[in-house]
Structure formats: structure tokens, C-alpha cells
Nucleic acid binder design. Structure first.
Lengths: 182, 182
DNA sequence: ACCCATTATGCAACCAGTTGCAAAAATGCG
DNA sequence: CGCATTTTTGCAACTGGTTGCATAATGGGT
């Protein structure tokens, strides 16, 4: 439900083509609202149809680059959408189901999967910390910077939380059933 | 993708009807893998078709209660599924998009939405802490109990993380634009 | 000039989850 | 009993996201 507004936000920051956006999503907004290039192309088409954005070179056939930029109606729509309240997205992770299932059925060789997840979360955390060091070297800055840093720190908190959960899970699983190493 | 296995887990813990499961989901597995009753009915039908579960009274028409229980093939399937590795579910929350959008477009009256979310997360956290106090009164217990407690604590960590993020967001928003109270 | 890899856009089919509604059976009240 | 309410199961239509593939344009190497 938020993809159109994520795209409007990205295009507000800087105009670009579908692929530009797909790439930028991978390293900024996509960290908390991921989207494939297919989704992005489809949604850009809808946004253009709705008169919220406009493509620059008006291509005559497929394969030609189209640079989209936000129209006034698009900025209005985004401003209208920002303050809308909405339910929080609940925690939703298959690993929690696996842990509950293992609690019911007994040892089922879950450690490798946990180590895999642990490595992924540690890598993500390192990536976030690097962005933090590069883009937010020190004390606050202006409002916009502070908000962007806040979002990044929410991501850091999220990854750190998972790492703690996974480390404790390994301790529990290895208590009875000594096996693989870290 | 995990709903069938969440249902197998729930039915392994205790047999029950579709509505029973819908209600139990609301207060246990549903905390980290939510599902509507429609989803549950549809999936139970598929699981029965696949020979993993079986309904007790063999109803001759609609509206009659059906108690499902897990067959041996269902337990096997669940045991097979537990150790499968899978990518971590990324953080995905519209509020992060709203914060980024507000960083781009400037003040847009986000505080009420933040307060709404903050109240929701605080309530959820209180609910988790109550379950913790009731179901896990003290030191560990056996493996199964420890794992269930771990899952609950992951939920607590998640909610606490959101509360911290939201509180900081309010501080930033109120720095320039003094307005609503807590 | 030609070809191939890369860039860029897009279609179609599918799957999981959501929403609105319907209908049969069970329950309880007068 | 008869009737309304609740319980329980379910269908159908839709939406957002995923996957696999197709096709056009561009740019660099020879």
C-alpha cells in the first residue's frame, strides 16, 4: 500500500528512470520498503496515469529510457498521505514459527538455519553502521538529517534485536544437544 | 509461505476446528504469524487434501464443526520443514516511508500518527509482559519452555525497539515545531 | 559495420493475504 | 415449537508482491 508514496518520496528527492529508482531503492528507501523492478515499473505507470508524475522524453517504443519527475499533484498527494495513521506492522517471521515447532516436536537440526540468519543480520548491521559513519558523522544537523538518521537507527535496533534473539536461541539449542560451532 | 506449517504446529500442540485455531492464533502463534479465519479455512482444506491432517466428524454439509488433527505425514512434513534456511524478513513499515517523506517535504503534521502508534506498541508490550509473568514465572524450565519464552522475548524486544524509535521521533518533530502534548 | 553484453522497459501468470458476503448449523429465548 | 442470534464454514473478487521471460535500445570491442 505504500509503494506509490515511497516512489513519490524517492522522486521528490531526485528525478530518475525506473531502473534508477530500482537501484536507489536497493540502498536507501528499499531498506525498509523493498520493491522489485517489476513492481516499480508497474507502479510508475499507474502514477503517471493518475497524473502524479510525468515522464520526460515521451518514448515512441519500448526499451527507451524514461526520466520521471513529480508533478505538483504528486507533491500534494504525498503531503496528504504523510500524516495518515495506520496500524503497526506486526512481527511476522517464519523463524518464530520454526522455533515454536521445534519446541513442540523436539530437536530438528535448526542450528545451521540460525547461523545463516545470524550471519545475514550481522552483515546488515555492519552495512547500516557504515552508512551511519559515512552519512551522519556527528551531532544531529538539521531536521531532515535527524529524521533520516532516526530511520537508520530504527534499522540498527531491528538488526541488533535479531542478533540477540538468535544468539540466545543458539545457547538454548546447544544446552542439551552439543553440536556445531559458531 | 509458512501458514501451513504454523497450522501444523498449532494442531500438533492441540487438535481443533477452524474457528478454534483462528481464536488460538489471536493469542499465541498469531503474534508473529497472523492469519484471518478465511486464510485458515482455505489452508486447512489444502492440508486435508494433501493428506497431512484429517477432520473428525466428516460433516455432510456446511456449517457443521470439523475437528482437525495431525496425521503422521503432517508431523513428518513439519519436522522436514523446521530446519530449512530462509532469508530474513526485512524491516517493512510505512511509518519509515512517512518519516523519510516528511524529511523531504517538511512538517506535515505527523505527531498524531506517531502518538497512535506509540500507544499501540506500549499496549502490545504490556500484553507481552503479562504473558511473560503468567506463563514463565521464573528460571528457564525445560527446552520447550525456554524456546517459547525466547520467542516471546523477541516480541518484547521488537515492541520496545519501536517505542524507542517513536519517542525519539517525537523529540525531533517537536524541536522546531512545538505543538501537541504526550 | 557488426555483434554481443548490458541497460532498460515491460507482459503474463502466479501466490499469499484481504475484504465482503453468504449460508448452514447450533443455541437460546419467548 | 418458532424465531432470532451466534457459531461455524465457506465462496468470490480483489490487491500487492513474486517469478520467469520477452523485447527494444545502447554502447563498447573488433
Amino acid at each position: 500500500m505504500s509503494l506509490p508514496h515511497a516512489l513519490l518520496t524517492a522522486l521528490t528527492e531526485k528525478s530518475g528512470s525506473g531502473l534508477d529508482l530500482a537501484r536507489r531503492f536497493d540502498k536507501s528507501i528499499g531498506h525498509f520498503w523493498s520493491a522489485t523492478h517489476q513492481q516499480i515499473y508497474r507502479e510508475l505507470g499507474r502514477l503517471e496515469q493518475a497524473g502524479l508524475i510525468k515522464a520526460e522524453p515521451l518514448p515512441d517504443s519500448r526499451g527507451q529510457k524514461k526520466i520521471y519527475h513529480v508533478l505538483a499533484a504528486g507533491r500534494d498527494e504525498l503531503r496528504r498521505w504523510i500524516p495518515l495513521a495506520e496500524d503497526s506492522s506486526p512481527l511476522r517471521d517464519a523463524l518464530m514459527v520454526r522455533l515454536r515447532a521445534e519446541a513442540s516436536l523436539g530437536p530438528a537440526g535448526l542450528e545451521p538455519a540460525l547461523l545463516h540468519r545470524l550471519a545475514a543480520h550481522r552483515q546488515k548491521l555492519a552495512q547500516y553502521r557504515q552508512i551511519e559513519a559515512e552519512d551522519f558523522p556527528h551531532g544531529s544537523g538539521d531536521r531532515a538529517q535527524a529524521l533520516q538518521k532516526l530511520v537508520l537507527e530504527a534499522g540498527i535496533r531491528y538488526e541488533a534485536g535479531w542478533i540477540e534473539t538468535l544468539e540466545q536461541a543458539l545457547v538454548i539449542l546447544r544446552r542439551d544437544d552439543p553440536g556445531a560451532r559458531d
